Computed example of a mutant assay.
Amino acid sequence: MKNMFASAFIATSLFVAGAAHYAHAASNDDNIPAAAPAIAAAVAKIADGKADVNGVRYHYLLAQGKPGAAVVVLLHGWASTSYMWRYVMPQLVARGYTVLAPDLRGLGDTSKPATGYEKANIADDIRMLVAKLNLDPHINLVGHDMGGMVAYAYAAQHPDEVRTLAILDVPLPGIEPWDQLIQTPRTWHFRFYSVQDVPEMLIAGRELEYLKWFHHSEAVNTRAFSNEAEETYAREYAMPGALRAGFEYYRAFPEDAKANREFAKTKLTMPVLGIGGSGSFGPIIGDHLRHVAAHVEALNVQGSGHWVAEEQPAVVTNALLKFLPRPQ
């Protein structure tokens, strides 16, 4: 493995801004590591690698804590890759967690198969990746957007292996009020992306323009998306097959809904944290997750839209540090 995370991110203005942001937050909250040198040391521990699991070559970022450290798995969503965790991941590493952040099936530098985008199947991908990397199988899952759907499918299928579950700003297919939500203007893109071939045809070659518009349309704090961040995402979604793979996540929703209705017949018993943006799903995420879990905490993040980990990273990191078990 090579330490690509450091070369890609530490020298950027994104890191400088993030370090300053956390240093300010730390003056008011001991749960946020304060010093930029501590974050730099954490970033230096993050290496990238690739592994073949479930017929897919996965790209991942991994920082190993001390032996016995609690494992946190960070799962991104659509219009993102593992790059979305550039603020949160170093903070967790600095606290001593072992942290894994893969690019999900079909996205980022992970290979792009034609099929297999049902969230239960992608949960199998991640479980196999955890095993392949010889990590403790009893993990703490954090998922945003599609990653949150995958995280729920993982926890529902393997509840004894998930210590805690955090789902960031996403509704679960098939779970109330899903049927109402998918008919609202708020979720217009669910229907658009589900159409075969047309979204790819209209967006291909315009990835930067489209993603910049889409990120801003879903954000409250639009300053979270610098030109550098937008260009990074655009390069990743302009890779051959990436748009199609991303839209397959939406085209799998009918199967996901069917699976989730079965999963929900048995409520999760591990601690569950729902985090949502006040300008997005924050007002409903707690009640939504209580349909599938018995022990739910909820946080409605003010000053954020959908992209909570990028729009308000200090708030999200603080909430995770309070929620997660101690690193050792």
Rank of each mutant, 00 (worst) to 15 (best):
A238H: 05
K212E: 15
A242C: 01
F225P: 01
P240E: 08
R223Y: 09
E236N: 04
T232S: 10
E231C: 07
H215I: 13
E209W: 06
T222P: 02
A238C: 10
L211N: 04
N227A: 13
F214P: 02
T232Q: 08
A245N: 00
W213M: 13
S226N: 07
T232G: 06
S226W: 11
E236V: 03
T222L: 11
E209A: 14
R244Q: 08
R244I: 09
A238G: 04
E209G: 12
E230P: 04
Y210V: 06
E236G: 02
A229I: 13
V220G: 04
S217F: 06
A219P: 01
L208P: 05
R244C: 05
K212V: 13
N221W: 05
W213A: 08
G246W: 02
H216T: 14
P240S: 03
S217N: 04
E230T: 09
Y210P: 00
L208G: 07
M239G: 08
T232W: 15
M239Y: 13
L243C: 01
S217Q: 14
E230K: 07
N221R: 02
A219E: 03
A245G: 02
H216I: 15
N221M: 07
R235E: 07
V220I: 14
G246P: 04
R235T: 08
A234L: 07
Y210I: 04
H216N: 15
R244T: 12
A229L: 14
R223K: 12
M239K: 11
A219T: 10
A242S: 03
N221L: 11
A229M: 12
R244G: 08
Y237T: 03
L211T: 02
M239C: 07
R223W: 10
K212S: 15
A219V: 07
R244P: 03
Y233K: 01
A234Y: 05
A242H: 02
E209C: 08
T222R: 12
